[in-house]
């Protein structure tokens, strides 16, 4: 196999791939944010994507987001499935005209030689019923494997996106396994394999996958979860029902983010209930609808804030 055309050295570990993505997108002008400090199902839930894709204020952010999908738990046995995994997320508003080229540049940065591989943009329209959001784009294939989602947001939280954000989502484990040539996720080097204490992905996560799989499928207290869901829902509405003018400071403070935290919470609780198998098919739709109602209410609130593009002049 010819490595002559390689311009970038191959990364050697999972974390090196993350570090290179961080450096690449920082170099392209993105604010490199940190993960959101709550349990979310995907990087899109981070307010840096959901809320910041709304309104007219320009935005460019990149971050790693640990994500949880309780139903995907396999006790660490499945080579490709995890209940806790990482997504790398980039959101740029307005979407730049060269976003595809920027994206391909990021693949080169992590050691994918586009002269040797077959990179394809295959239709895949994105829709999140819980976020009331949809967009058009592709799944990106590298040699037949899906390595990213590429979406132009058209609507979020029921609001049309003006301007449109371009969103890139990399499934980090799968992408890294491909780049590193690893067949089972738990065998993947997490840090430098030459390091004095070399850790594999399994050293970090095998045990937690087992613990959370058991917990999510069999132990999580469904009665508590059901009431937590109700409480989060109530709290979200209660926060949004507050006066826009803070009586203490006299400032106009709309609490879109704290309310959205409750929406995130409700969404994760729903995922846990789903994994516990206590939600019937009909109820499922109803729960998704309730989370969507929260997401929409938060979006409605966010567009009334400064970050959401609100100006006192425009309001007059």
């Amino acid at each position: 196999m010819s490595d002559m055309s390689q311009t970038v050295e191959k990364p050697r570990s999972f974390q090196e791939i993350i570090l290179r993505l961080q450096a690449y997108w920082a170099g392209k002008g993105c604010a490199v944010l940190q993960p959101y400090d709550m349990e979310v199902g995907a990087g899109t839930f981070h307010p840096a994507t959901t809320l910041r894709s709304l309104g007219s204020t320009p935005w460019a952010a990149a971050y790693v987001q640990p994500s949880r999908r309780p139903t995907d738990g396999r006790y660490g046995e499945n080579p490709n499935r995890l209940q806790h995994y990482y997504q790398y997320q980039v959101l740029i508003k307005p979407s730049p005209p060269d976003l595809q080229d920027l994206y391909l540049g990021s693949l080169k940065a992590i050691g994918i030689d586009t002269d040797l591989h077959d990179i394809r943009f295959v239709e895949d329209d994105w829709e999140s019923p819980t976020l009331g959001a949809w967009g058009l784009g592709w799944e990106v294939w590298c040699d037949g494997m899906e390595v990213s989602q590429f979406t132009y947001f058209q609507q979020v939280g029921g609001h049309d996106c003006h301007p449109v954000s371009g969103e890139l989502t990399y499934g980090l484990e799968r992408l890294a396994m491909y780049v590193l040539g690893i067949d089972h996720v738990m065998d993947m080097p997490f840090n430098d394999p030459q390091a004095p204490i070399a850790l594999k992905y399994g050293d970090v996560f095998q045990q937690t996958e087992e613990e959370y799989s058991r917990h999510n499928f069999d132990v999580a207290n469904t009665e508590k979860l059901l009431s937590d869901f109700e409480n989060a829902e109530k709290e979200c509405h209660a926060i949004l029902d507050q006066e826009h003018i803070d009586p203490k400071t006299g400032k106009r403070i709309i609490m879109a983010h704290p309310a959205y935290d409750q929406c995130i919470k409700a969404s994760h609780i729903f995922n846990l209930l789903d994994a516990r198998g206590v939600i019937s098919v009909t109820e499922r739709q109803a729960y998704i609808g309730r989370v969507r109602t929260l997401a929409k209410a938060c979006a409605d609130a966010f567009v009334l804030t400064t970050a959401g593009g609100y100006t006192p002049e425009a309001a007059e």
């Binding site: 196999m1 010819s2 055309s5 040797l116 077959d118 590298c142 040699d143 037949g144 491909y178 067949d183």
Partner: peptide, 19 residues
């Protein structure tokens, strides 16, 4: 595939086989 490569598609085919 959507391209020719210096290795006559060996890398591409290997990747596809793996997937």
């Amino acid at each position: 595939a959507n391209r020719e490569t210096a290795d006559n598609g060996a890398t591409i085919l290997a990747g596809n086989q793996k997937v």
